[in-house]
Amino acid sequence: MLFASNVFMTFAWYGHLKYKTSPLLIAIIVSWGIAFFEYCLAVPANRIGSATYTTAELKTIQEVITLTVFAGFSVLYLKEPLTINHLVGFAFICAGAYFIFKGPL
């Protein structure tokens, strides 16, 4: 559910960038419409997940999923390349996720 919600949110936040000539108000309204479906998935996913994970762990899962979805979206939909700098930055975020789940040091 979190993966699907991220697909919706990525399109809501960034999908309009492919249509920069359309009016901003239209982009906002369409984005809100798409975001509604994201919330319909994210809210129950977080509620269900909170039975197993802490909120910090849920947020960490969300961020790693967001990066994964965004990387694919950026390359496949927006036709933007991923650079080595992006990959290194993503790797550092994943390293941070490791420490969230590792437990006490």
Rank of each mutant, 00 (worst) to 15 (best):
57 E>M: 13
41 L>R: 07
6 N>S: 14
36 F>G: 08
24 L>Y: 11
82 L>A: 05
73 F>H: 03
16 H>V: 02
42 A>E: 12
9 M>S: 12
75 V>N: 05
18 K>C: 01
100 I>V: 15
88 V>F: 13
32 W>F: 12
11 F>K: 00
70 F>I: 05
49 G>K: 05
18 K>N: 01
50 S>F: 13
18 K>L: 06
58 L>T: 04
88 V>I: 15
101 F>T: 09
93 I>V: 13
75 V>E: 01
49 G>H: 10
11 F>S: 00
85 N>K: 13
45 A>K: 03
39 Y>C: 06
20 K>W: 11
104 P>L: 02
70 F>Q: 02
42 A>S: 13
2 L>N: 11
99 F>G: 08
32 W>G: 08
94 C>L: 15
48 I>S: 08
55 T>Y: 15
15 G>A: 06
37 F>S: 02
55 T>G: 06
67 L>N: 10
14 Y>N: 04
87 L>Y: 08
69 V>E: 00
101 F>C: 10
48 I>R: 12
76 L>R: 00
90 F>A: 13
50 S>K: 15
59 K>D: 08
47 R>A: 12
36 F>S: 14
31 S>W: 04
30 V>Q: 00
59 K>M: 15
70 F>S: 07
90 F>C: 04
102 K>V: 05
39 Y>E: 11
99 F>Q: 06
81 P>K: 02
72 G>C: 06
70 F>H: 02
67 L>A: 03
96 G>A: 12
37 F>L: 14
51 A>N: 15
59 K>E: 09
76 L>G: 07
49 G>V: 07
98 Y>P: 03
105 L>V: 14
93 I>P: 03
2 L>G: 08
18 K>E: 00
97 A>Y: 03
7 V>E: 06
1 M>C: 06
9 M>A: 13
83 T>F: 10
31 S>V: 05
45 A>G: 07
48 I>D: 08
58 L>R: 03
67 L>D: 03
37 F>M: 07
63 E>W: 08
48 I>L: 15
48 I>Y: 15
15 G>Q: 01
4 A>C: 12
95 A>K: 09
24 L>M: 14
75 V>Q: 10
59 K>R: 11
83 T>D: 10
76 L>K: 01
83 T>E: 11
91 A>R: 04
